[in-house]
Nucleic acid binder design. Structure first.
Length: 563
RNA sequence: GUCCGCGUAGUUCAGCAGGAUAGAACGUCACCCUCCUAAGGUGAAUGUCGGAGGUUCGAAUCCUCUCGCGGAUACCA
């Protein structure tokens, strides 16, 4: 990466300056340099701040910078020093190489090996099979599926998993609710208890139950039916799991009991008030937790402990769980169980996401359990998969997401996803037009294409870029530079998104790249009678298209050729 | 009470391993199509970075306190 390159340039020069006794009292370079992009572009494209050497050298930062610069021989870039900053500005040769690299690597551009093949299990959504997903589930689905792509792209061996909570009391309630709906359909009058699932979706389920001949137990049928609907929606939402892991299998395989025994052997359990307790306060929890209730049934935690053990035993080195912020109190007991069973809880990483607010008609609809539930299905039908995914992804998970349904539905520049996809379509359009026959607007005569299809393919395949700058046109020149620098930033963005588990950085990047491209487009004619410039600029447009579709692939949204 | 997240432009949010005049989008106002998608672009206005202390050559960023908003504090899942 270019930033690393300049860090090394400065580091090397600083060491040279130091051994030549040009850095005052400094005896060696221990500081870690960071390369960043200056806020003010007049300073340059990249800058390294050397002020941190001031303490060792006992020199003023500007003097240090000047001393270091003496030992740099710039190639394809220029240097200027302002205060304690060494600023670098790239020249054309350097920028051309960026475009060439993109054309050469294509879909591999930006790929890196941070993970070194580490086996990561990422578990998300994991809803109860008792009804349709609500909007909050959409956030975790979008986040998990996109993060999985990012992690794969950065060298992790990723396995995506959905935990089906199909063993607890809620399944009895589901069975009971379905039974009541079936009776209702047959004309019986029924009494609805407070805790029944009264959603309309069970009416349809009841119809299917009757159609299927009423052979199965209510609970089994409803579970399967709900899970089927959930899976269909996930697939539509570009969220593809490698595994749907059923909680009941943990009981069937006796894994839950084995876990409890293991914890008992470890001396972490005790009985009190007729219940079996796990002493999680031996770790970081603030109170002990019940594993087996007074009535003899297990808590949710008990099976979950077995589940996490199961994941480690399947060979995953690192577990990532995506949970809603309302589960944050659950983390200490989960980590306690992992440590108590002899695994390392540092290998469990929990990503807590804040909840989603729905804004409709300018009004917030809080997503409470008792309020009217807006389902993910309804939302996707209304605004589309791409817009829903992008919207769910574009904010840091640390902040409560305001999902403005009306705005996400709009097909104009107010809607960031359309803005970004439009840039891609525009690239495609230019590349198409380049080799099409054209008409002279004045005479109506047919003119040959700007470039032959074979020539265009040749440019893209050889990854050799001719000149793409017009130095006489200052606005176009600057826009071109800016665009190429942005393309290079893709690598840094991917790295950040992976390290910080933050796909929203990619949304932001996509917006910035689209913006820079539209700006470039406005000041630069790509297709012109200057053959060399046309070729160079087509290469640039192709590389923009390539990087945009690369971002979309990580976000799992579509890259339209036409809009 | 304790724990977690958030308080930055009219609005939604970036920036928070401290660094050069605090950014973007939307909204507002004024402009730009004979020619590759105007679903686009250019320009203008807009801020006591919730408040108070502290650390530092330097704080939106780190520490302490404080105020406000949301969430969690189950023998529910």
């Amino acid at each position: 990466m270019i930033k690393d390159f300049f860090v090394n340039v400065v580091k090397g020069a600083a060491e040279a300056a130091c051994s030549n006794k040009k850095l005052g009292a400094a005896e060696k370079i221990s500081a870690n340099f960071v390369c960043e992009t200056p806020k003010n572009p007049e300073f340059g494209d990249y800058s390294v701040n050397v002020s941190s050497l001031a303490r060792d050298a006992k020199m003023a930062p500007p003097m240090i910078a000047n001393a270091i610069v003496e030992f740099i021989k710039p190639e394809n870039y220029s240097i200027n020093v302002v205060a304690g900053f060494i600023n670098f500005k790239l020249e054309e040769g350097f920028l051309k190489k960026v475009v060439e690299e993109i054309l050469e690597k294509r879909e591999e551009y930006g790929k890196m090996n941070l993970g070194k093949g580490k086996k990561v299990n990422i578990e998300y959504v994991s809803a109860n099979p008792t009804g349709p997903f609500h909007i909050g589930h959409g956030r975790w689905a979008a986040l998990g599926s996109s993060l999985a792509e990012v992690l794969k792209f950065t060298g992790y061996d990723v396995y995506q998993e959905f935990y089906i909570n199909d063993a607890g009391n809620q399944i009895n309630k589901l069975a009971m609710s379905l039974e009541l709906r079936v009776k209702e359909l047959k004309g019986e009058t029924v009494e609805w208890p407070e805790d029944a699932y009264k959603g309309d979706y069970l009416i349809d389920c009841a119809k299917r139950y009757i159609e299927a001949g009423e052979k199965e137990a209510y609970g089994e049928f409803a579970k399967k039916d709900m899970l089927r609907l959930q899976k269909e929606l996930l697939e539509k939402f570009e969220t593809n799991f490698d595994c749907f892991f059923s909680e009941t299998t943990l009981y069937k395989n006796n894994e839950v009991e084995k876990c409890v025994k293991a914890l008992e052997t470890a001396g972490k359990l005790y009985e009190k008030d007729g219940a079996l307790w796990f002493r999680t306060t031996d770790y970081t929890d603030d109170q002990d937790r019940v594993l087996r209730k007074k009535d003899g049934s297990n808590t949710y935690l008990t099976a979950d402990i077995a589940y996490h053990k199961n994941k480690f035993d399947r060979g995953f080195e690192h577990l990532i769980n995506i949970w809603g912020a309302d589960h944050h109190g659950y983390i200490p007991r989960m980590k306690a169980s992992i440590d108590a069973l002899g695994y390392d809880s540092n290998n469990l990483e929990v990503l807590l996401g804040q909840l989603v607010n729905i804004i409709q008609n300018g009004e917030a609809v809080r997503m409470g359990k008792r309020k009217k539930m807006v389902t993910l299905d309804e939302l996707v039908d209304e605004v589309g998969v791409d817009a829903t995914r992008f919207w769910m992804l574009m904010r840091s998970i640390d902040t409560t997401l305001d999902f403005d349904v009306d705005l996400a539905k709009q097909k104009n520049d107010q809607n960031p996803v359309f803005y970004v996809q439009y840039a891609h379509a525009r690239c495609c359009s230019i590349l198409r037009k380049a080799s099409e026959d054209r008409l002279d607007t004045e005479t109506g005569e047919k003119l040959p294409p700007f470039i032959q299809k074979e020539e265009l393919d040749e440019i893209l395949n050889s990854a050799k870029v001719s000149n793409l700058f017009d130095k006489d046109d200052e606005k176009s020149y600057e826009a071109t530079r800016k665009l190429i620098l942005r393309l290079e930033e893709f690598k840094t963005t991917v790295e950040g998104a992976s390290r910080m588990r933050a796909p929203y950085l990619l949304c932001k990047y996509a917006s910035n790249l689209a913006y820079d491209f539209h700006h470039f487009y406005n000041f630069t004619r790509v297709l012109s009678d200057d053959k060399e410039l046309t070729k160079g600029r087509l290469a640039l447009v192709a590389s923009v298209k390539n990087v945009l579709s690369g971002v979309f692939r990580l976000l799992k949204i579509s890259a339209p050729e036409k809009m």
